[in-house]
Design a protein around this nucleic acid. Sequence first.
RNA 1: GGGCGUUUAGCUCAGUUGGUUAGAGCGCAUCGUUCACAUCGAUGAGGUCGCUGGUUCGAAUCCAGCAACGCCCACCA
Length: 747
Amino acid sequence: MNQDFLKPYDHSQEEKIYHRWEGSGFFNPDKFLPRSLQKSKKDYFSIIMPPPNANGSLHVGHAVMIALEDILTRYFRLKGKRTLWLPGADHAGFETQVVFEKKLEKEGTSRFEILNQPQGKERLFQMIWDFTLNNKKHMEDQIRRLGASCDWSREKFTLDPEIVKIVYQTFEKLYKDGLIYKDKRMVNWCIKHQTTLSDLETKYEERKDSLYYIKYGPLTVATVRLETIFGDTALAVHPKDKRYQKFIGQELEVETLIGKRKIKVIADEIVDPHFGTGVVKVTPAHDPDDYEMWKRHKNEIAGPCQVIDQFGRLDLLRHFPGNKKAQKYHGLKISQAREIIANDMQSLGLIEKIDFDYKHNISLCYKCLTPLEPRILDQWFLDLSSPQAKKKLVLPALEAVKKGKIKIIPKFQEKIYFHWMKNIRDWNISRQIVWGIPIPVWYCQENEKNFVISQDQPNHCPFCKKCVMKKEEDVFDTWFSSGQWPFATLMAQKSKNGSDFKDFYPTSVMETGYDILFFWVARMIMLGLYVTGKVPFKVVYLHGLVRDKDKQKMSKSKGNVVDPLGVVEQYGADALRMALVVGNSPGQDVIYDENKIRGYRNFSNKLWNIARFVISSTESLLDQIISQKGNFWKNLSKLEKEDKKLLKEFQGIKKKVALEIEKFRFSQAAEIAYHYVWHRFADEIIEGKKKILSGDNEKERNSSALLLYFILYQSLIMLHPFMPFVTEAIYQRLPKKEKEFLMIEKW
RNA sequence: GGGCGUUUAGCUCAGUUGGUUAGAGCGCAUCGUUCACAUCGAUGAGGUCGCUGGUUCGAAUCCAGCAACGCCCACCA
């Protein structure tokens, strides 16, 4: 027997095994099964790895992703399909910049300090670039340690020039189809991060605030946002509210904090007569509803009057120059202002009453949890609400899932997808940050309404013919580029004469967490169909999130994150993978449990010992019972009757495991294989054969030896997708084997 | 305000079209190291399958209602 078949199993050899795999080139479908040898064009399996954000280390959630995708990849490779698993990394615009800004804060500086220096923007970009590339390298090594059999030669980064080029092409196509527009609209603004955010990047939280009942002449209005009163341009009531009929259309002369003013009363359906007093103040510059209301009453009332600046401070002098009373409030932060205003109004008798325990939802920046400030800004949008947008982007994406061209697992997530898609709104795709793909637009300096779409600076301005065109400062929302990931990564494979897209698109499966169904999956479906006319993937498998023992989401701030590398070092990647796969059903969260990992570490060792025993007790007989040339298992038909039964039983198990994998029931598949190998094969079959193997009935002995060796050999194949390392380690020590690596065996 | 998910042994979870005494892992109890493995083996204790009602010869499984927990979506000041 092999000299290093020591006990117990030592998982520290995992790293070496991975190097051998990677060095062999078999992760690359071109080496594993060149296109010329592929039986039919459809005989492929492809999966694009959701590119992890290159701004930190992987967490156990990523380990779930790697485990599940590697199971699929290794299984279909063993099945002999031309198999591609394409890895990547995401620059993760806003998220990465937030991480980097935190780092700067720790170092006692800030993004704004750097931006204020000469060449600040370029410098900051370069700093984040270096930071990201460093993290990316580290991440790739982590992915390797988890055993991912992905093709590194095809790895893509969202900022690779080939990817950016494709993103630009898509942008231009959308623009030409009238689906991209730039417009002043009310958007979510984070006063800390100084950028807009999409509707998905907001978080709602219930807060207890004071609801102030303030007097506007004869009317009383209930409001939380006292500080916006300076921006009020009207009052509104419900058109059918009997109490206020006589006021509708009237212009009231009222006393305010900063003097007398006139304010008009309008009627609008949106006003709920049962809330507060049934009268609302209309503040078009600082409330989305009010903004919409103003649009409906443009002819009657004044437009947005912005009294809060981009940093969340009162900005009054612009609107009320020379008003000494306004000066007092100018420059105050919102929370401060609210208190002072309340006091002043109370002493002027302008507050009727205050409800101190008013509970309501406010929207927050999902990263820093600062209340978002709605602002009217000129932003780029992807149209998702007009009839033509419905026709070209939304409906095809709905139909694809409805008609089963894309299957979402678990099925209940389809309902959630439909609901979101049906209520989808225009998507703000521009961000005021440096870390991202620049929006490829150049403006005429004479008139900024005129612009051209171009990656490089145009030689001359086609509008005024004389200016040097000015570059758009904003970058794309990260999801605008990752939303194109499946086709972009495959189209960008220029070294392979552009055939990857033909060979591997649509991809077979998209495996990711359910938390990014809207952020990512929905957008990939829309943009994939739009650009290629085909679905980007046939199946969406949504795994659950890993939580800690108290069912808490893992996060750095809670300090409950588990570093997968530490676990891998202690128990081996195989053990971690099994622990994360078993008991993990789609869409359902998994609880991280170290005991479970220990249990599967024990299983690695069990398997190792099974192999030691089977090899040592059959080795001397193998020459007689196994043929190295031609039909490797030719003597299988000569098995004893009893053994044939056991053989059949095993084949049934293996078939079941395959079926479960193909049905994406990984947990069941792993458990069936595990249970068979330990409790049937080891505990019963091997135990039962011990006497025969040491007995003197040669026929029975040969039959038993062949059976045990066969089941061991096949069990390695069966377990390999789940526990690639230990199975390969054993395979390499088999006295007789068919292939160079277990990973390229036949299922 | 809508919608979704979960509720099965002390813990974490399986249980795919309804069918014999409801399963696994961990944990627990007792016993066992010449004989592949103590990261092990053998044996065992432990469940009114959230509650109520219904369909059925038969329900953890289907239907209705309720409850608890969790999550998502939503422009009500």
